[in-house]
Amino acid sequence: MKMVQGRIIYVLAFVMAGLGLTAVSMSAALYTENFTNTTSGNQAISTVGWTGYYTTSATNVSAIVMGSGADTWGLSNTYGNPIANGQGYLFTLNSSYSQQIFAAYDSTFTAMDMTGTSITWNMGNASNIPKIYVLIQVAGSWYASTTSFSTPSGYSAGSFNSATSGVTYSLNFTTDKSAWRNFTLVENSSMGLGAALTSDLPSSSITSIGYFIDYTGVTGTGSAVRIDTLQIIPEPVVATLLLLGIGLVSGRQLRSRWRDPAPS
């Protein structure tokens, strides 16, 4: 039995290699945003097609360049994570109010069915206090992840882009009501987390993706949140196929033994 299973694994591994597959994923990312900025200074997030807001009145700061001393979003021109992706990452600072809130999303996003996917990104914040929530738009309404994310310790820009582990975060997509809560985002009017959902999301198709950042609990200004390499990827399935193949062979061997018992 072990020899047969070993041969099956070898054959499947050979086929996978021929198809360019690995045990991690059968296909490339369905969506990637690297927040590229190869200029000589920080840029507004509108340059990569993102829209950003701050404060409870949802003031639009998409076209404001970070560095003006205001609470806003920005695209850094330093290297992100992984460093091989080059210059640029998404960041914000609570420059004038320590417990500010921010939201931003991809305003050029193409609608996508999220069934069987995970959302991943790299993050290295200056403080472990800010809470980061994933935002999605479904059927014209905004939702924030029930789960919030924060870094376990503080990062500088240099330690973030040089990190080779410990900075990747992920959220498996589901329409289950327990995974999401309502989110209010009305430009120049109101912004903030809402109540827990009482029913599942109306669809698995999203029309935008982004982040909500809550600085509640931060005691000082100038605390950076840094986000890079946002991706939507299919959940791994190759390992399941391997187990299925082994199971089929094992089942056939058992049936064969039942039909043709060994002589006593």
Rank of each mutant, 00 (worst) to 15 (best):
G140D: 07
T59I: 15
T38D: 14
N122F: 00
F160L: 02
T146M: 02
I213F: 00
S127W: 04
I206L: 05
T51W: 06
S162A: 10
R226N: 11
A224I: 06
Y97E: 14
I8T: 12
D71W: 08
K2Y: 10
S141K: 13
T164R: 09
T59S: 15
A224T: 07
S76D: 07
A63M: 12
L243W: 08
F102C: 04
Y97M: 13
Y10T: 12
N94M: 04
W258D: 09
Q231V: 06
Y79Q: 14
T229I: 08
D113R: 06
P130V: 04
G49Y: 07
G67Q: 03
T55P: 04
W258Y: 12
A29W: 03
T184Q: 10
G49T: 05
S205V: 15
M66E: 12
Q5I: 08
V138H: 02
A84P: 02
Y105A: 00
G69N: 07
S96Y: 08
N182V: 07
V61G: 06
L19A: 09
L197I: 01
W180C: 01
F109A: 02
G251T: 10
Q100F: 05
L197S: 01
V138T: 07
T229R: 12
G88S: 06
I233H: 06
M123Q: 14
Y133P: 00
I233A: 08
G194K: 01
T32Q: 13
R252G: 09
W50D: 01
